[in-house]
Write a protein that binds this DNA or RNA. Structure first.
Lengths: 236, 236
DNA sequence: CGGCAGTTTGATGTTACTCAATTTAAGTGG
DNA sequence: CCACTTAAATTGAGTAACATCAAACTGCCG
């Protein structure tokens, strides 16, 4: 298990909601805690919370990668999306028992806040709620695109879409050098995200490598032919 | 094209948002209009609005059935969900250019309101915004379930899920007699909703008929074996 | 009666899954 | 540093699910 640095670089300003709750003072992003706000370290692979479990807290991811997922009755899972630093778990804000589970992909740091306290602040400032609602609407749009991808795209297209989508989100937060991105995903995660088997994901990634489109190995994605990747993975 | 009655029965009270905007006075659901609020009749099959078109209005469905969908670049479409009376098009509330299109499945009646006017009211009453946000969160949950269905379910399971989901939503608004529901869907719509071809939908519905699970013909769904339908179509 | 949209059916093709074996990479303990 | 272990990725062969293409059938409307 790798260690991660304390939340000094906690990039909360990424999400409008956080700035709105905390104001834009320097107090954001430090490791200081209070009775209603905490920073927690969670090791790689651990479940942050399980679906339908009541939690008095809302969650924001500060550092590392995570993912949200649903379990089907036969034990398979569907990853809904990947969580990057700055992401608010909207589901935890509006529901006491979110219907999804969350797991840490890398070691992560989460900021939790008492829902009651947040709701109280929300009641005093409309801007906060507005930001949360817009955040929810943006999420909705991404989910709807995913529905179209799963409903209508072939395996190659789905994986291309995922890679594109991840690099886009990633690029807005990090510096990328010559088309290389660090992606801490196993092929199993890709499979669970785009509705395929890990075996088939391996084959498709092999094809991408052969054709000089993209190379994902050892946790590093190298985009070799962006225009081709776009041609494959663009929805509209 | 069938005629539909005026919006006397406009069941807006179904959605918390509407009641909040209009108050709970008797003025809701009448056909009277103002400069910022209108009721419009739209014939069967017509597009209510197209993706990425700017619209100054927000939409609420008052009567009839509609559906939201996305188009892929190769012309196929993915239906995101079906719209029933009382449904607010959340996307039109938060975005000037929704990324989805909407089409009337039957002749429908929609209520449109100027977004600016609604936003002004929202700014004065937190409860409205809260209702809208909760509405959005509930929608999100349904979309996330759909992602798991498309990613992990077989054709039979998908169709069973859709039928179950529709009957549940339908049942909360209408009286059902002995498991018979009027569904104005063509098999093409089912196919576009669950990511299959119409041909395959026909086969699966045939199997359901044979096995005495459900019979969908001539726009009427008859659920013959609810427990079996549930066994097939339940996510968790 | 003819025409049309929707559905059903059959035959065949393709995509992705399943099962199983092999390879690779990364630890771990001696 | 090297055997041993283990998780992940790759590869091959066979199969199941769904798509595609095309033809026939149904009900409805003019």
């Amino acid at each position: 298990m790798k260690k991660i640095s304390p939340c000094v670089a906690c990039p909360m300003s990424n999400v409008g909601f956080c700035g709105a709750v905390f104001g834009s003072t320097g107090s954001v992003g430090t490791t200081e805690t209070s009775d209603w706000q905490k920073h927690t370290l969670i090791p790689e692979g651990k479940e942050v919370f399980a679906a339908n479990e009541a939690s008095p807290d809302i969650y924001i991811l500060c550092a590392g990668w995570g993912f949200r997922f649903l379990q089907t009755s036969d034990g398979r899972r569907q990853i809904l999306d990947f969580l990057l630093p700055g992401d608010l778990l909207t589901g935890t804000l509006f529901r006491e028992r979110p219907h999804f589970s969350v797991r840490a992909l890398t070691a992560i740091q989460v900021s939790t806040m008492k829902r009651l306290e947040v709701h109280a602040r929300v009641a005093q400032d409309l801007k906060i709620l507005w930001a949360a609602a817009e955040n929810c609407a943006a999420e909705t749009q991404a989910l709807e695109n995913m529905i179209a991808v799963l409903g209508r795209f072939s395996a190659e297209q789905r994986i291309a879409y995922l890679l594109l989508h991840l690099t886009k989100r990633f690029a807005s937060r990090n510096v990328i050098r010559d088309g290389r991105y660090a992606l801490p995903l196993r092929q199993q995660h890709i499979a669970d995200a785009v509705g395929l088997t890990p075996v088939h994901v391996s084959r498709v990634l092999g094809v991408f490598r052969e054709r000089g489109i993209a190379d994902l190995s050892n946790g590093v994605l190298e985009v070799l032919d962006m225009s081709e990747l776009r041609r494959l993975g663009t929805l509209k």
